[in-house]
Design a protein around this nucleic acid. Structure first.
Length: 320
DNA sequence: GCTGCATGATGAG
DNA sequence: TCATCCTGCAGCA
């Protein structure tokens, strides 16, 4: 999307909040030539100057990691149809903040003032992207970027998994997880083991595979780990497509009487919540944030335990 | 107005 | 294992 919004033309890069001022000045006036993701990291490639014919190799890479509360919010003149936000904003520019209505004459579009603590702002002729609250926002050289990527595990969303092939990526994940007696629950959160999995996918993928998250990685059968990988390939790509995480199987989604529905809505808001066609938020997860409620499959109460500083949710029966 | 919480990661001890 | 970084918002007074 950043490519669509800003690609090919010089982009103004600023740091309204000020904490990214030095990096912004390095990028300001450059051209976005590519944007790619590896796990939770976003890399935006900037070429120094626009050029009509010569293919542009990035000289700077903007590395962004949203972390827990980082978010992108987007606004534009309406000439490009984009989502309003990515990440953890409880607001959407297009909803509450209400953008200036699409201007009939795009040339006169004026970007809205930055709202909140905007670390970085990318501004093109027709659109603006504001970054708030990231864990990481820095400018890297191509060599530094390669160094970051070398430390990341395979990524189920990437077409080749970030390895020679998707099969090779799966094998790398399985072998790495079975190398250690660290619990598989912790390993799924380790970006060097597998990139891109967070607390939701960790809990949900292990539930779907019937794997006990507290089991040491080396004791989990390779077939089970391979199944977890294959499942994550489907789940995470679907999530990337829809901008929304849904991990329940249709037959396990309960009706409106589902306990804790309001609670689930409050605790994890996602894109397109409220969309009549979408799976309602209180039915999107099997175990995540469902502690104390009955397992959708067996009825046993969903368990909660703090593991390495993060909440782990699982069913002690289905994942026993 | 204040407090606590959140889909993360890092560094000290 | 803990503190710390960072931000916005729901839930409270």
């Amino acid at each position: 999307m950043l490519r669509e919004l800003f690609g090919g033309r010089p982009v103004r890069v600023t740091s309204p909040q000020g904490r990214f001022a030095a990096g912004a000045s390095l990028l300001d006036g450059g051209t976005v030539v590519t944007a790619e993701a590896w796990g939770k990291q976003l890399f935006v490639g900037f070429a120094a100057a626009p050029s009509a014919s010569v293919p542009q190799e990035p000289v700077h890479w903007l590395r962004v990691h949203l972390g827990l509360y980082g978010a992108w919010t987007f606004a534009g003149d309406g000439s490009t149809d984009v989502v309003h936000a990515i990440g953890a904003p409880r607001r959407r520019i297009g909803e509450r903040d209400s953008l200036p209505a699409p201007v009939p004459t795009p040339g006169e579009w004026v970007p809205p003032a930055p709202r909140g603590a905007v670390r970085a702002r990318l501004l093109g002729p027709h659109a603006v992207a504001d970054l708030t609250g990231p864990t990481a926002c820095e400018v890297l050289t191509p060599v530094e970027k390669a160094g970051v990527e070398a430390r990341l595990g395979p990524d189920p969303i990437r077409p080749d998994g970030g390895r020679a092939s998707l099969d090779a990526a799966r094998e790398a994940f399985v072998a790495r997880a079975r190398r250690s007696r660290v619990t598989v629950g912790q390993q799924l959160m380790d970006q060097a083991v597998i990139a891109g999995v967070g607390n939701i996918y960790r809990a949900e993928a292990l539930f779907r595979a019937g794997v006990d998250p507290l089991r040491p990685g080396r004791d989990v059968p390779a077939t089970a780990l391979a199944a977890v990988w294959d499942d994550l390939v489907v789940l995470m790509r679907d999530g990337a497509d829809t901008g929304r995480i849904v991990t329940t199987r249709p037959e396990h989604r309960s009706g409106p009487a589902d306990g804790g529905a309001a609670d689930a809505r409050r605790r994890t808001r996602q894109n397109s919540d409220g969309d009549p066609g979408a799976v309602p938020p209180e039915q999107a997860f099997s175990v995540y944030h469902r502690d104390g409620q009955p397992c959708r499959v067996c009825g046993a109460p969903v368990l909660l335990k703090e593991l390495a500083g993060r909440n782990l949710f699982w069913c002690g029966v289905c994942q026993g």
